[in-house]
Design a protein around this nucleic acid. Structure first.
Length: 507
RNA sequence: GGCCCGUUCGUCUAGUGGUUAGGACUCAUGGUUUUCAUCCAUGCAACAGGGGUUCGAUCCCCCUACGGGCUGCCA
């Protein structure tokens, strides 16, 4: 007996009896028509617009993008918006905004999956016509019951193939009676194997797969069907996605084969976990790419850190720009195990980037983060401010925040800090310093150093005792740029005013 | 339950049939620095467990445990 002939369409009809060896049923191997596509791969990122772009999605997008850039290919974006309930247009915008901000620009127009509906229907019909799929009249409650029963008996539940080879007349009869049906794929005997670029060879026995549904009773096609059709239509050569899809892949391959479509190459990426080793979810501290923007991380920093999660460059290099990444990226170096997201390391990467960033670029990043930053102040002054504090900051946000002390007229002193810093001795020092500053003629570093030395002598103290109270009085914080730089940049008037202000606060 | 995948310092990772199991982040200590940060030095810290194979296993094989994914008329 011949099972549905020509199920696999590989230029030749193959008869699978289920008894012969599996080789005959296996698809092309060495003659993979996609081999030539290596030079111009087409990859895609396919998020569902049911939420913001999270950090795991960003990494998936990044690896796709890197691979495309590296091989002179195309990086495409497909929005999987077929879940009408949960899909929202605002999320589409959030996702595209986040991708743009990261610099992961896509080629060609965005594909909305929902727009492909008629194409999906067409393909479902084709499978029905070809006999690679069938109408299944099992009702949901029947299935639920069967499932419960096998669970009770501790048996493995399998969807019964009751309607798989139903004569046409009987089918018509059932439809006439108003019985609803789903459409299931006829999973062939044998096994399905594929070679994942990250995980290597993956093999499953087809008997472990049910005749899964490709179209629901309302006619809408299901994910594992649609994704295969869309990827094929988009001529995707490499499917790069999270490893939560690893187990779905054989099903999708079955769809490709049933439809005679070219199979892509697959590469599955390990998951990103939270610090509790649980899959990164909304429950975790920050998973939204947007949040990292707000925290003051630049796109380059995010990309750099994300690339190191689950991938290693086969060298000691840890700081990368996009070009380095494009050059070094390799699926062979992608880890199989999931990785924990570590914000400490992110901060370190960020700091490394900041220290290498020139002041101008840094200022532009600050403007992206907070457009009103330094309003009304001169560019040159702002530049000096940034130059002075950038080496002490880990994020753009920190630079923006710390720079405030150069902008505001009035500093909000922390009472605890004041009481810790000031006693009768330091108050006297502040007063003396105020007097000296007031009368100084030459506003220079040398002159300031002289003043400091005089005070140290007068009060018989080390420089720390002079510097600390002055620093707190001038900046409101117990650390920061060199004291003379601070004074010189703030200017005489501001310094005098802040010294007086401090004295008022503590007295 | 079944199937698939995984398991090296707290974290990201390198590594090999014989290594003092390497690096980075974090943390601790010391040094440099007018403070802080940087920087430098030092230190703490890992092969999940059990069986094999082997002269010898972190590395190869098997089992167990643990973790994750899939198993849906979600995507």
């Amino acid at each position: 007996m011949i099972n549905y002939i020509d199920f696999w369409r590989h230029g030749r009809a193959v008869e699978c009896t289920g008894l012969e060896n599996q080789q005959g049923c296996k698809p092309f191997r060495g003659s993979n028509p996609l081999a030539s596509a290596m030079s111009n791969p087409r990859v895609r990122f396919a998020p569902s617009p049911t939420g913001y772009l999270h950090i795991g999605g960003a990494r998936t997008a990044l690896f796709n993008w890197l691979f495309a850039k590296q091989n002179n290919g195309k990086f495409l974006l497909r929005i999987e918006d077929t879940d009408l309930e949960r899909s929202k247009e605002k999320y589409v915008n959030q996702i595209t905004d986040a991708l743009k901000w990261l610099g992961l620009n896509w080629d060609e127009d965005i594909i909305l999956q929902s727009k492909n509906n008629s194409r999906h229907q067409e393909m479902v019909s084709r499978m029905l016509k070809d006999g690679t799929a069938y109408k299944c009249f099992l009702q949901k409650d029947e299935l639920d019951k069967l499932r419960r029963e096998s669970e009770k008996k501790k048996e493995v539940f399998r969807v019964p193939r009751t309607y798989r080879d139903l004569p046409v007349e009987k089918e018509k009869e059932l439809i006439k009676k108003g019985k609803s049906f789903t459409i299931r794929i006829k999973v062939p005997d044998g096994e399905t194997e594929f070679n994942d670029l990250v995980y290597g060879s993956i093999k499953v026995q087809n008997k472990d797969l049910d005749d899964f549904i490709i179209a629901r009773s309302d006619g809408s096609p299901t994910y594992n069907f649609v994704v295969a059709v869309d990827d094929a239509d988009m001529k995707i050569t490499h499917v790069v996605r999270g490893d939560d899809h690893l187990a779905n892949t054989p099903k999708q391959i079955l769809v490709y084969r049933a439809l005679g479509l070219d199979e892509p190459i697959f590469a599955h990426l390990p998951m990103i976990l939270g610090s509790d080793k649980k899959r990164l979810s909304k429950r975790h501290a920050a998973t939204n790419v947007q949040e990292y923007k707000e925290k003051g991380f630049t796109p380059k920093v995010i990309l750099n850190y994300l690339s190191l999660l689950g991938w290693n460059p086969d060298s000691d290099q840890e700081i990368f720009n996009e070009n380095d990444l494009v050059k070094s990226f390799q699926f062979q170096q992608v880890q199989k195990k999931s990785a924990v997201f570590d914000e400490k390391k992110l901060l370190w990467i960020s700091q490394q980037h900041l220290s290498e960033m020139n002041v101008r670029d840094l200022m532009n990043e600050i403007y992206v983060l907070s457009p009103g930053w330094g309003d009304g102040l001169e560019w040159d002054y702002l530049k000096e401010v940034v130059k002075l504090i950038k080496d002490r900051c880990k994020t753009i946000k920190e630079v923006a925040t710390m720079s405030e002390l150069f902008f505001t007229d009035k500093i909000d002193y922390d009472p605890d800090l004041l009481s810790k810093t000031f006693n009768s001795e330091s108050i006297a020092i502040i007063k003396d310093f105020h007097t000296a500053l007031n009368t100084v003629e030459d506003w220079s570093r040398v002159e300031l150093e002289n003043i400091f030395e005089n005070i140290m002598e007068q009060h018989e103290v080390v420089i720390g005792k002079v510097m600390k109270p002055i620093r707190v009085a001038l900046s409101g914080i117990p650390f920061g740029p060199g004291i003379f730089d601070l004074i010189l940049l703030l200017g005489k008037d501001v310094c005098l005013r802040r010294l007086r202000h401090t004295l008022l606060e503590i007295e």
